[in-house]
Design a protein around this nucleic acid. Structure first.
Length: 848
RNA sequence: GCGGACGUGGCGAAAUUGGUAGACGCGCCAGCCUUAGGAGCUGGUCCUUUAAUCGGGGUGCCGGUUCGAGUCCGGCCGUUCGCACCA
């Protein structure tokens, strides 16, 4: 629009012109976005800010479909919070960027038959257009794109720091393989055995992979949660994911099977000293009637008797080819006897050792003691294979000699039976005492186990940062020297993944052949790239130093701006991004690179937007195109409506008709401003206001400021907006013309919500500066107190009337006032037994 | 199965420490204005009863604590999210 120039160059004329016109969002929104850019309104002094505040929103992946309304909901909530803090006088730094590397971007390119290196910049440009249109207070100097060499150079640098600190290692392991995306997935990316991205059933493969030792940070990751100001739901999700469980590691002496004695009879030979199991129910040891190892357990080969060799081998083959869906979903118990026995350290009985796929190698020691009497899975297994079931726990009111129909897993009020010296001891007490008893004999030690596994970051894909490692025949695994970073991702036309389990880069000898940085001999590069979640695990560290090509992050800027003061985002990242970011920050702290170990001081999870009661999805065809809504109603109205739907932290139901209410509200404010300006022009120019503020309106105003301030601070945007609407209704009651003094604070309050309109109104009302530099209105405490109030009068708890009462009135006065009212007095029949007086609220007269 | 959140009009939702249930908005009804209105303004809108009041009932269900419960406690029912053969 060429209109822009006219607006800009001829502001006063335009101001008076628009003052008499109707509210035209498209004009003023464009105008102010340009103004903010020209005036550098959104750019704090990165090296000199006095009251720095880092407000972060979760950066999106720039999908080709463009901005989703869910993105907009998330960004708007963050933006309101940031703009509010700006009005409160903070130097707010709110950056934005793109999580452009990774499988989703690559898959989309594959679908389009395009190359991600060419497609990604286009997607970013489109996304950026939409984000700019919504009018966020973003400092665009700090833009980050994880797929740019300037960024991923430092992602690789971070990998090297992990490597240096011994926290990155390569191992051959059974990993999750997505046959559709043709890559390895982290545990966190597998949902119920299906690929989180594409939904394909995940298979198990045995591949050499790079892992990060997040598991060794379990305790810290868990304990620190208590110190963080985060949404409770997010913390809870992390606690579940880390999965701490207290128990004991018990050791069982192993004996060779009798049948193996080759006719010598009873000549037991020890083949492995001991077998260790993890249990949270050491108290049930007397009921352990067999042991079960995971089929992958390394001792299986040693323990297995020749007679059972074939059966065991066959079972192992079967499990190793199984995909994780069938392996991990509950189903019929299967297993094979190894031919070996172990000695129960409590009963000294010889118990058989089995293998079964219901025991997982990656948890605990990969072996369990089976107590079929008191564990559902063990019970089921014992039934299938006819193994003995011994009862060792009974509830308080039973003797415990009746046979079990099912596993008795209740442990809160049970006591031990058939447990030798521990008969009668309660379960909770026995957990410790049995462990201690076994420990004295060297058969137990208390252990804390975590469910959190190390993080597999290898991806056999193209669109990611190459892992900066070189393999040399002479020197072994050699990290790329930091001075050689970035290891650039080459442009290759054939970036399509295949079934081989190796990356597309491995097909390019000219790329992976390289001289060893240590000995100069022939060597080859690692051809896997790293997980997208490594890219996003540190982007917030980069923002304040974006553009610097000599460091990942500048220490001075880190000191001034980090850790992040306020982070707002979706709970879908509760255990992925948010946990990885905490881990990486801790590692960088331990390596001496950061002065803090927790990246996000405060985190709030927002809710989800649904539409007309149903989830939005492309397949249902009920998605919302933000562009068309912003076109029709204006970005301000759209932003505000999204916030008005429901509590921000819970989400809301988008109803197409609802936005009109918010737009009407903005129209009303606009027309009040227009009236004031018109009056002033008629009266001789700006500043000659002639409508006098109304005392009742002003009192309502101060209450409203307090309410909006408190609600905005706690992200209760829906009620803050309601309060502003209420005030506007009072201010305009009966189509009354508002006064300038009534209007100015409203414009300031609404600024975080409808920033363009607020700026325009602020200017029309005669202000030169940005409304965001004007400060937050201050309410007057004295205006909040009334001389009298309406006292609710109850008789026996039922509301019977209301009386006006002086604010400082005491109970006797209140009672007298109530009884003077015939409508109330008629309900007070018998004796007054009791009077409850809650000043400023109610009076309850209790009669017999 | 374990852990969390939630359940309020026709709809989205409000409701400090327990203190007038339904703010605000949508929709709907009536009126005003208008040549007209998918514009604007005013009033009304939980159910029941009533000419209107008065009254009675009402926050998923059952019970409890309390002068007083949407809110607290116990037990169900339902919705939803996270984890899940984790020993």
């Amino acid at each position: 629009m060429k209109h822009d120039e006219e607006i800009h160059d001829n502001r006063d004329a335009e101001a008076s012109a628009s003052a008499t016109s109707t509210y035209e969002p498209s004009l003023i929104e464009r105008k102010w976005q340009k103004e903010w850019a020209d005036r550098k309104t959104n750019e704090p002094d990165m090296d000199g800010a006095k009251r720095p505040l880092y407000a972060l929103m979760m950066f999106p992946y720039p999908s080709a479909e463009g901005l989703h309304v869910g993105n907009l909901f998330a960004f708007t909530g963050s933006d309101i919070s940031a703009r509010y803090m700006r009005l409160r006088g903070f130097d707010v730094f709110q950056p934005f960027g793109y999580d452009a590397f990774g499988i989703h971007s690559e898959n989309y390119a594959l679908k389009q038959g395009a190359h991600p290196m060419e497609l990604t910049p286009k997607n970013i440009a489109n996304f950026q257009r939409q984000v700019e249109r919504a009018g966020f207070m973003i400092d665009w100097r700090a833009k980050v794109d994880t797929s740019s060499p300037e960024y991923y150079r430092w992602t690789q640098w971070i990998f090297l720091q992990l490597y240096k600190q011994g926290l990155a290692y390569k191992k051959a392991a059974a990993v999750n393989w997505c046959p559709n995306d043709k890559t390895v997935l982290a545990n966190e990316q597998v949902e119920n055995g299906f690929c989180e991205r594409c939904g394909a059933a995940v298979e198990q493969r045995f591949l050499e992979q790079w892992f990060l030792r997040i598991g060794s940070y379990s305790e810290r990751l868990l304990d620190n949660l208590d110190t963080l100001d985060w949404s409770a739901t997010t913390k809870q999700a992390q606690r579940n994911w880390i999965g701490r469980s207290e128990g004991a590691e018990l050791s069982f002496k192993v004996v060779r099977a009798r049948e193996m004695g080759a006719g010598t009879g009873g000549n037991d030979a020890v083949v492995a000293d001991e077998l260790r199991v993890f249990t949270t129910r050491a108290d049930t040891i007397f009921g352990a009637t067999y042991l079960v190892l995971a089929p992958e357990h390394p001792l299986v080969a040693v323990l297995c008797s020749p007679a059972q060799q074939d059966a065991v081998q066959a079972y192992q083959d079967r499990t190793s080819h199984q995909d994780l869906v069938s392996r991990k979903s509950v189903k019929e118990k299967t297993g094979v006897f190894t031919g070996a026995y172990a000695e129960n350290p409590a009963t000294n009985a010889q118990i058989p050792i089995w293998i079964a796929d219901y025991v997982l190698m990656e948890y605990g020691t990969g072996a369990i003691m089976a107590v079929p009497g008191h564990d559902e899975r063990d019970f089921e297994f014992a039934k299938v294979f006819d193994l003995p079931i011994t009862r060792v726990v009974a509830s308080a009111d039973e003797a415990g000699d009746s046979p079990l129909e099912s596993a008795y897993t209740e442990d809160s009020n049970g006591h031990l039976v058939n447990s030798g010296p521990f008969d009668g001891v309660t379960v909770s007490e026995a957990k410790n005492r049995v462990t201690e008893w076994l420990a004295l004999r060297g058969n137990a030690r208390p252990v804390v186990n975590y469910r959190l596994h190390d993080w597999c970051i290898s991806r056999q894909r193209y669109w990611g940062p190459p892992i900066p490692i070189i393999y040399c025949d002479a020197c072994g695994t050699v990290p790329v020297p930091e001075s050689d970073l970035p290891v650039a991702l080459p442009f290759i036309p054939d970036f399509k993944p295949d079934d081989s389990g190796i990356s597309p880069l491995a097909r390019h000898e000219e790329w992976y052949r390289v001289a060893c940085p240590q000995c100069g001999g022939q060597a080859r590069r690692e051809t896997d790239v790293s997980d997208t979640f490594l890219d996003s695990s540190w982007y917030f560290l980069r923002y304040p130093s974006a553009g610097r090509d000599d460091v990942a992050f500048d220490p001075g800027r880190v000191d001034r701006w980090l850790p992040v003061d306020s982070y707002i985002g979706g709970n879908e990242h509760a255990v992925l991004h948010l946990l990885y970011s905490r881990f990486v920050t801790m590692v960088l702290h331990d390596g001496g690179h950061l002065p803090f170990e927790e990246p996000f001081t405060k985190f709030r999870a927002h809710g989800m937007i649904i539409r007309e009661g149903a989830k939005m999805s492309k397949s249902k065809g009920n998605t919302i195109n933000p562009d068309s809504y912003m076109e029709q109603w204006g970005a301000d109205a759209f932003r505000m409506y999204l916030m008005f739907l429901g509590p921000y932290e819970e989400g809301g139901d988008y109803q197409d008709k609802g936005i009109v209410g918010v737009r009407r509200f903005l129209d009303r404010i606009w027309s009040s401003v227009r009236d004031v300006v018109a009056d002033e022009l008629a009266a001789g120019g700006v500043g000659s206001a002639n409508v006098v503020a109304d005392a009742d309106v002003i009192r309502k105003l101060h209450r409203t400021i307090k309410k909006v301030e408190e609600d905005t601070a706690r992200l209760a945007y829906n009620t803050a907006i309601a309060a502003m609407m209420e005030y506007t209704n009072v201010m305009r009651r009966g189509d009354r013309t508002a006064s300038k003094d009534e209007l100015l604070p409203l414009v300031q309050m609404i600024a975080p919500y409808a920033p363009h309109m607020a700026e325009e109104c602020w200017q029309l009302l005669g202000n030169e500066n940005s409304v965001f530099d004007s400060g937050w209105p201050v309410y007057d405490q004295a205006q909040l107190v009334d001389e009298d109030y309406e006292l609710v009068v109850q008789v026996n708890g039922k509301v019977r009337g209301k009386v006006r009462l002086a604010t400082d009135a005491v109970q006797d006065a209140a009672l007298a006032a109530a009884m003077a009212e015939p409508a109330i007095a008629k309900f007070v029949g018998g004796d007054v037994r009791k009077v409850i007086f809650v000043p400023m609220r109610l009076l309850n007269i209790v009669v017999s």
